[in-house]
Each structure stands twice: as C-alpha cells, then as structure tokens.
Amino acid sequence: MRFIRFFLKRLVHSLFVIWGVVTVVFFLRFLTPGDPTTALVSPDAGQDVRDALREELRLDEPIYIQYFEYLTDLMVGDFGNSMDVLDRPVTEWIFSAYLIRSVELALAATFVAVVIAIPLGVISARRRHQPADYSATLFSLFGISTPNFWLGIMLIIIVAVPVGFIPTGNPGPLFYQALGDAVTQGNFGGLWDWLRHIFLPAITLGTYFTALITRLTRSGMLEEIGKPYVKACHAKGLPETLTLYKHVLRNTLIPIITILGLQLGTLIGGAIVTEVVFEWNGLGQLLIDRISSRDWTMIQGIIIVIGVSFVVINTIVDILYAYLDPQVIDQ
C-alpha cells in the first residue's frame, strides 16, 4: 500500500517532468533568430516556396496554437515531419535502426562497466593500500578524466589499426538480427560481426562509467565496512563472503544505483560523441546531422525521445531504489 502510494507519486512527478521537457524543447526553437525556412530552402527559391513551407510547418499561426497542436500531436505519437525530407515523419526516422543501435551501444557499455567495475571496486576496497588498490584507483582517475572521443581515437590507433579485423567506421548488423541468424540458421558469423563492430565503441563509452562505478564502489564499501552492523554480522559468525556480498556490497550498490540513474545523462552524451567517432549510425549521430541542417522538427523529436527515456529510466531507478532500500518510502 505504502509502496503503491509512493509509486503513484513518483509517476505523477515523472509525467510533470516529461511535460516540462516537451515544453522546453518546443520553445527552444522560438529562441532561434531568423526565419526557420531560410536554412531549409535553397537560396534562390522563390517566396512561394517559402510560403508553402511556412504553411506546411504551421509557422504563421500564433505560438500558443502551435504549442497546443504540437502537444496534441505528440500525444498520438506524431512528432511532425522532418523539415529536411518533408514527406518523412520524424517518428519513422527515430524509431528505426538508429534508436536500436543507440540502445545497443548504451547497453553494451553499461554491461562492460558493471562487469568490470564492481569486482574492481570490491577488490580495491578489500586490498586497501595495496598495489591492486592503487592500480584500480589510478585507472579510475584516468577513466573519469579522459574525454571519450579521444579515448575512441586512441583505441582506433592502438587497437584497430594494428589488429586489422576490428572495424572503426559504420556499425555492423543489429544484435537481434544477428542473434536471429545464429538461432534459426546456426550462423554465428553475424554475431561475430556484431561483436567485432561494437567492441571498441562499447569500451570507449563504458570507460567513464567503469571508472565512476569503481570509485563509488570502493569508497562506498570502505564506508559501509566501518558500520556497526558489519561487526554484528561478524559476531554472528556469518561467512565472510556472505557478510561482504549480501550485506556490505548490497548496501553499497543501492545508493550507487541512484547516482548512476542521474549519471545516465553522461552515458547518453558520451554515446553521441562515441557514435560520431565510430560513425555509428545511432540517434546521437542523427542529432548532430540534423543540427547541422537545422532540421528543427527532427531535433525536437530526438531530444524529446532522449529526455523522456532519461526520465523513464530514472523513474524506474527510483522505484527500484525504494524497493531495495525500505527506508526511502517512509521518508
């Protein structure tokens, strides 16, 4: 019951934030100086072409009408048409391989980060002030201080160029397709191809997170180990690993989950840059492209999709947090 109340409250809040995101994004465009059609039509196009475009984009109506229409359109999943390629709806652009590729990359990076960082953080905390700890600390210092576009480039120079079989441009097959091939036809070439392609981008994108989680796990574990309940666990005679994982590590990771939710923005931002470096045709690269051509409906659509996913994930994280840390609901 208490949980449901918490859940509903959190949901209402998220809906409000999503509305805020949409509103901010909508009005952003009206801050741009000049006629939005200027960038879209060739300089020698006549006034009639422009007017037709203005009409099409409903630019001549009062702003609140435009806003209202935009909102109502959004509710039914209509983001408008791309200004650049007018006959193609924004949703068709976004909800396609672009989005899937971005999600794949983000998940792969998160996977890399979690798999490496948590054991590293635990080792670092348990071997405090030993060489393993110093190496992990140094690694995480570099990890959070290295711009990932440069890291990607370094990986290309150091790994891809000498090795040869790791591609550095354009993405490979989509994971689900590759997996389908493997399952239905026993053809693992696709999966290998996918792995080959995503390997460097995932490391590039995952490094910052790996470093961050390592750091947080280490300091969190050290703080947690000093708490009296750990001594109580020892006094009960619990196996050391049980105390370490079930009690200490679990309590360390709970607050880290929220921090990671907030830091998801870093992952998305990093994904944009990583996509550019590896010519990974994802949402980030699409955004950069569209910004260059001032395709505002597309820009708005992409940012809204990113913002909304961010909100949704953070809502899930908060609810998960409440589930894991029973004190949250009562606060």
Binding site: P228, Y229, A232, H234, K236, G237, H247, N251, P326, Q327
Partner: peptide, 30 residues
C-alpha cells in the same frame, strides 16, 4: 567460534542491524 560458541549483544541496536534487510532474515541468518 563466533556464532557457535560466543554471541554478542551490542550497545546500539539501531546501528547493529543492517537497515535494508528484514529483522527476521537477520535473526534467521544467525
């Protein structure tokens, strides 16, 4: 020997229990 031959009760019960695990579970662990 801890837990099997020696048991401890601490001064501050609030901090001697793990806040994110049920009391029953923690007693059951022992």
């Amino acid at each position: 020997l801890r837990g099997s031959e020696f048991a401890l009760i601490f001064q501050d019960p609030m901090s001697s229990f793990n806040p994110s695990i049920t009391v029953g579970e923690q007693v059951a662990e022992a």
